[in-house]
């Protein structure tokens, strides 16, 4: 890797790590089920940025785009199913507080 490529990778990797930190913190600290989804989304954004940087620096942009598209498809399916779970949770407990999940049986 040349010095220019290393610098570019560090810039994007650092931003990706910061996005991962925000996402993890959001997941760890919140009690709101909807905010868990927001945290998860931010984590996926960080991963997408990593993939993009890896593709650009290695010169395999097309391959990285293919992987990013796959990640986006998985992301949207996960979010749709999770949104359904959030609605089910709201129906059952009339709240989005994840502490209520302790009352679930089976």
């Amino acid at each position: 890797m040349s010095a220019e490529q290393t610098l570019l990778f560090w810039q994007y990797a650092s931003t990706g790590i910061l996005l991962l930190v925000i996402g993890f913190y959001c997941l760890l600290v919140t009690y709101n089920l909807f905010r868990v989804l927001i945290g998860l989304e931010l984590l996926i954004k960080g991963v997408t940025l990593f993939l993009l940087a890896a593709g650009v620096i290695s010169g395999h942009s097309a391959l990285s785009q293919g992987v990013i598209i796959t990640v986006i498809v998985i992301e949207v399916v996960v979010m749709i199913v999770a949104a359904g779970i959030v609605l089910g949770f709201q129906d059952k407990f009339d709240s989005l507080n994840v502490k209520n999940a302790r009352e679930l049986k089976g």
Binding site: F34, L37, S64, I68, V76, M79, I80, A83, V86
Partner: peptide, 26 residues
Amino acid sequence: FNAPYAAAFELSVCAGLIPVIFISVI
């Protein structure tokens, strides 16, 4: 970064569809 296909997916799905789903849930 010359990744137009991934960008189009990101814009249409992540900036379009997912916020619509989230706002509907809200």
